[in-house]
Design a protein around this nucleic acid. Structure first.
Length: 314
DNA sequence: ACCACCACGTTGTCCCTACG
DNA sequence: CGTAGGGACAACGTGGTGGT
């Protein structure tokens, strides 16, 4: 499939063509069910589960020369690979039968999906060339903005606040500032208080209304403070998100940021994306569109200084 | 070190309200 | 009365926090 092709071609093998992908076939016939080889093998064949055979007693991270030099280990991996290829072929035979006997839409959909593979592979392998000068400037600008907002927030609250900690934020907003608790259901259906984006947006609205309706200066200021805390928190979270997900990332040695296109990633037929197979790059679908703007661009004259802010903030 | 949970980046659909 | 716009939620993937 596409994933294997990308890994193989990255290691010097050229894939000429292939006509069947068990994942694509499963995706077309049973889009809501798992598409892993382990699952379809369990459904289609009588082969006992074998996927843990190479991992059971050896940590996969220890696939070192030392580990590999033990013939027993090599034997295990070879046997595993043989089962993998054998099962894949067995799955193919069963899927081919199923596909041709299924609804009339299956075959053309399968063919269409297969034709998407080279497109997805091409996009994955191309990636995006990163402009290193711009990258430095962007990082400097984001760190500057973060530091600016963070110091304002810290001064307002009187201590350092980690806006990414929902625990800290709930204590600040509800216990210390006395705002009306925003709640949501957790996974088990239990109501818990939250300081997520929705909560902050509605708190901003409430604080604004209170501020506008109050007369006493001291009371007005209290609401203004709460309002600013919420707004700063949203801004800081946004900046940190952009930094951690899109700027502070590892990219390929050739200066390109790549992402893996998964044409069978979503039940609905949409494509999904992830980081590249080697865990570099970004899922290119979610790159923020919003521009990063500085009021005073001259702060970029000292990027070195800005980059040093990183240590103080983290 | 691992895991559950929280949070947030994208597009798209549906529903409702406000507005011209 | 048609439409613009917002909220809620659907579809995804990943990073950070804090407890075990």
């Amino acid at each position: 499939g596409p994933y294997d092709q990308i890994v193989l071609e990255a290691n010097g093998f050229k894939i000429k063509n292939y006509f069947w992908d068990t994942m694509v076939a499963q995706h077309v016939m049973q889009p809501e069910m798992p598409k892993t080889l382990a699952y379809i093998t369990s459904v289609n064949t009588r082969e006992p589960y074998y996927k843990d055979e190479v991992k059971s007693d050896e940590d996969t991270k220890s696939w070192t020369q030392k580990w590999w030099s033990i013939s027993e280990n090599r034997e295990k991996v070879w046997r595993y690979n043989c089962k993998d290829t054998g099962c894949t072929f067995e799955n193919f035979l069963i899927q081919e039968e199923e596909l041709s006997n299924g609804p009339s839409g299956w075959t053309p959909t399968f063919q269409f999906k297969m034709s998407e593979i080279p497109v997805g592979v091409r996009i994955s392998q191309a990636g995006m060339l990163r402009d290193e000068k711009k990258h430095r400037e962007l990082k400097g600008a984001l760190l500057y903005i973060w530091a600016d907002f963070q110091s304002a927030l810290n001064n307002l609250v009187g201590r350092t606040v980690n806006t990414n900690s929902s625990k800290q934020m709930c204590i600040l907003l509800y216990d210390e500032l006395g705002l009306k608790e925003k709640r949501k259901r957790d996974k088990n259906g239990k109501w818990v208080r939250t300081a997520d984006e929705n909560a902050l947006v509605s708190l901003v609205g409430e604080c604004k209304a209170q501020y506008d309706n109050r007369i006493q200066k001291a009371v007005k200021e209290k609401w203004l403070k709460a309002l600013v805390v919420c707004k700063l928190t949203m801004k800081i979270r946004g900046v940190r998100k952009v930094l951690s997900s899109y700027v502070d990332i590892e990219i390929s040695d050739d200066g390109r940021a790549r992402g893996l296109v998964k044409i069978t990633g979503a039940e609905t037929g949409r494509w999904s994306m992830s980081k590249y197979y080697d865990n570099t790059g970004i899922p290119m679908q979610t790159v923020p569109r919003d521009p990063v703007e500085l009021e005073d661009e001259s702060v970029l004259d000292n990027i070195e200084g800005l980059l040093e802010l990183e240590g103080a903030l983290k």
